Amino acid sequence: MSESPPATPGFQLFDDSVPYTTIRCLKEEQLRSVWLLDISGRGLTTLKRWPVNWKLRWKSLFGQSQPQRQVTGAWRLLEAGVNTPQPATPVYRAGQFYQLEMPFIEGTTVDEVLKNASPAAHSELARIARELGEIVRRLAEARLRHRDLKLENVILKPPQSNQGPPSLWLIDPVGIRLCNSLETSLICMLDRLAIQPLNEGIPLPLSLQIICIRSAIGNLSRQHRRQFFQRLRNQLKRSVKQA
C-alpha cells in the first residue's frame, strides 16, 4: 500500500470567514513556521506562526517579541522608503499560536541570482548591487540598521507586465533596530552582506562589492571616507576570524 500524503493543517485566520487554500510550508523551525496560503480576494499570502510560551509573553510586555518586531520593522522599512510587504493584519492570537499575515512577494532571492548568474549577466548584477547599496544607505540615513541582513531575505521581484526593471524587496524585517550612528549602521550592514557569500562560497566579484559600497556611502563626505574604510576593513577581518 502506498503511503498517504501528510494532512494539510487548517488555520484560524484573522478573518476566519474568508476561504483559503494552503499551498505549502515555506519554513519550519521547532514550533515556529511560515506558510504560503492563497486567500480568496487577497491572493498569495504569507502566514507566520509563533507558539505561545512564557518567553514570548514576557517579551511582548516590552514590545520586543518576534511577532511585534516583525510589524514594527516592516513599518520602519516602509517609512524609510524600502520595499517590504506591508502587514495585512495585526499580530493576533489563534489557539496556541500568535499569527501574522503578510503579502507574499514572488521572485528570486539575491543569493540564488548570484549562484546561478552567468558572466554575461554582469550588468544586471551591477544594477542589483547598486540598488542593494541604496537600501543600506536609506536605512542608515533613517537611523536604522538591519542586524541580520542576508541575501536570502532580499527578493528580486519581476516588474508588473514586464515594464521597467525588477525591484529589490526585503522580506524579513525582524532584525531592524534603531541606530543613531550613520557609520556604525553602514558598517554593520555592509559587513553582513559581505560575510554571507564568503561563508557559503557564493562567487561575488570584487567589482560588485565596490559598486554596492559606493552606492551605500554616496553621501559620506570625503574627509570621513578614509576613516570609514578603515573601520569597515577592521570589522570584516573580525567577522572572517569568527566565521
Rank of each mutant, 00 (worst) to 15 (best):
P165D: 04
S215W: 02
S60F: 08
I39N: 15
L31M: 14
L125V: 01
L36F: 02
L47I: 07
N180V: 13
G95A: 00
C188I: 13
R127I: 05
Q86G: 09
F62G: 12
I217E: 06
I211S: 04
A140V: 11
E131V: 02
P159A: 08
I171C: 02
P166V: 05
S118T: 09
L151M: 04
I187F: 06
Q227P: 10
I39H: 10
T72N: 08
S4L: 15
Q86K: 10
G218V: 09
Q163K: 11
I135L: 14
P119E: 08
L125W: 05
P9Y: 04
S2C: 09
G201H: 01
V18A: 14
L232E: 10
H122K: 12
P103N: 03
T8Y: 15
C212M: 10
A216G: 07
L232N: 03
V71K: 04
V52F: 09
R93P: 09
F104G: 02
G81C: 09
R238H: 11
M189D: 06
L186Q: 05
R76E: 12
L190I: 07
C188F: 15
D15S: 08
L31K: 11
P159H: 11
K59Y: 09
N162M: 12
G175Q: 02
G201F: 03
K48G: 03
R42Y: 07
R42A: 11
E141Y: 12
I202C: 01
D15C: 04
R222L: 11
G164M: 02
S185Q: 06
P87C: 07
A126I: 03
Q235C: 09
K48C: 03
T45S: 04
A121I: 02
L186D: 08
L178Q: 15
Q64I: 15
P158W: 03
L156N: 02
A94N: 12
N162D: 13
W54K: 13
Q66R: 13
L151H: 06
G10H: 15
V52W: 08
Y92Q: 01
P6R: 07
I213H: 14
Y98Q: 07
R143N: 14
S4W: 12
S161C: 14
L132Q: 03
P90Y: 03
V174M: 04
Q209P: 00
E29K: 14
G164T: 01
I202E: 02
R143V: 03
L100I: 08
A7W: 07
Q68M: 06
L26F: 04
S181F: 10
V154P: 05
P119I: 10
H224D: 11
V110C: 01
L26G: 01
P119Y: 07
Q68I: 09
A121P: 13
W169Q: 00
M102P: 04
R138H: 08
L193S: 07
F97D: 13
Q12F: 12
F11E: 03
R147T: 08
D148G: 05
H224E: 12
P67C: 12
P5W: 03
S185D: 05
P6C: 05
S181C: 15
H146Y: 00
T109S: 06
E3P: 01
